[in-house]
C-alpha cells in the first residue's frame, strides 16, 4: 500500500485553558491517499475546520501526530512547512479572501509571488490558470467587481496556479447559489479526476459530501461512530 499523502494519528486540539478549555478535536485518525477526494462533514462547531487546519499544517496538533508523506510534521522545519503550503497545497475558502482592490490576475499569482517567481512567468502561469477557469477576460478587473461565482473561480485559479498536490476547500460553495455552486463543484471534481489533485473538502452540505470518494463525519470533535465506514457498511446506513 502506498504511503498516504497526509496521515493523522489520533490527533487532538484544544483551545483555552482551565475552565474555559474547549476540546475542538479529540483522537481523530485519518489517512488521505493521493488522488482521493475526501469530504470532512459536520455541523458548525463540530471541529471539522480544525481538522482541516491541522491537515493543512496551518496549526499544530496538541496530541497525536501528523505525517506528511510519511514524515512527522513536527520534524519539518518552518521553511519546509512554508514550501509545502506554498507549492503542494492549494486553498479555497468560503469567504474567498481576495484582495478587493487588486486585479484578478494579481490575486491569482499571489502564491507565485510568495514563492519568488519572476513577473513574466507569474503572468504566464496566472493567465493559464485563469484560462482554465474561463476567467481570462476578467484578469485586469478588480476582484471586488466579480460576481460570487467568478470570485470562487478566481480563488480556485489561485489555488491551482502552483500546480498543487492537494487542494483544501473550506465550504467552497457556502456563499454561492445552487447553480453557481454546482459549477464550482464540477470544476473541483474535474481537477480531481483529470489532474489527479487530491481534494479535501470541508462541508456541511451532504450533497457535496456525497460526490466525494469518501466522507469523514466529525461530531463534537470526534469521528461520528454512527456514520463511520463500518457503520455505513451495514444496510441500515444512510446513502454513501
Amino acid at each position: 500500500m502506498t504511503v498516504p499523502v497526509l496521515s493523522a494519528r489520533n490527533i487532538g486540539k484544544s483551545y483555552g485553558s482551565g475552565a474555559n478549555r474547549f476540546d475542538a478535536l479529540t483522537g481523530v485518525s485519518v489517512d488521505i491517499h493521493s488522488g482521493e477526494s475526501v469530504a470532512i462533514v459536520g455541523k458548525s462547531g463540530s471541529g471539522k475546520s480544525t481538522l482541516m487546519h491541522l491537515l493543512a499544517l496551518l496549526d499544530d496538533p496538541d496530541t497525536g501526530e501528523l505525517l506528511v508523506e510519511g514524515t512527522d510534521a513536527k520534524k519539518l522545519k518552518g521553511k519546509e512547512v512554508n514550501r509545502l503550503r506554498n507549492q503542494d497545497f492549494g486553498f479555497v475558502f468560503q469567504q474567498f479572501f481576495l484582495t478587493a482592490n487588486a486585479s484578478v490576475l494579481d490575486n491569482v499569482v499571489l502564491p507565485l509571488k510568495i514563492a519568488g517567481i519572476g513577473p513574466k512567468e507569474r503572468k504566464a502561469r496566472g493567465m493559464a490558470a485563469l484560462e482554465q477557469l474561463e476567467l481570462a477576460d476578467k484578469a485586469r478587473n478588480k476582484a471586488i467587481n466579480l460576481s460570487g461565482g467568478q470570485k470562487q473561480r478566481a480563488v480556485i485559479a489561485r489555488a491551482l496556479v502552483n500546480n498543487p498536490k492537494v487542494i483544501f476547500a473550506d465550504e467552497p460553495t457556502g456563499n454561492l447559489d445552487t447553480a453557481t455552486g454546482a459549477v464550482v463543484e464540477d470544476i473541483l471534481f474535474a481537477l480531481n479526476k483529470d489532474q489527479g489533485i487530491t481534494l479535501i473538502i470541508v462541508t456541511h452540505d451532504s450533497d457535496l459530501a456525497a460526490r466525494c470518494d469518501r466522507q469523514i463525519y466529525i461530531r463534537d470533535g470526534r469521528e461520528d461512530p454512527t456514520r463511520s465506514p463500518e457503520a455505513l457498511a451495514k444496510p441500515a446506513g444512510g446513502h454513501a
Binding site: A56, L58, G78, K79, V81, N82, R83, L84, R85, N86, Q87, F91, F97, L110, P111, I114, A115
Partner: peptide
C-alpha cells in the same frame, strides 16, 4: 493570514 497560509514566512 492568507499570505502566511500560502507559505509566506
Amino acid at each position: 493570514g492568507l499570505m502566511k497560509a500560502m507559505g509566506m514566512n
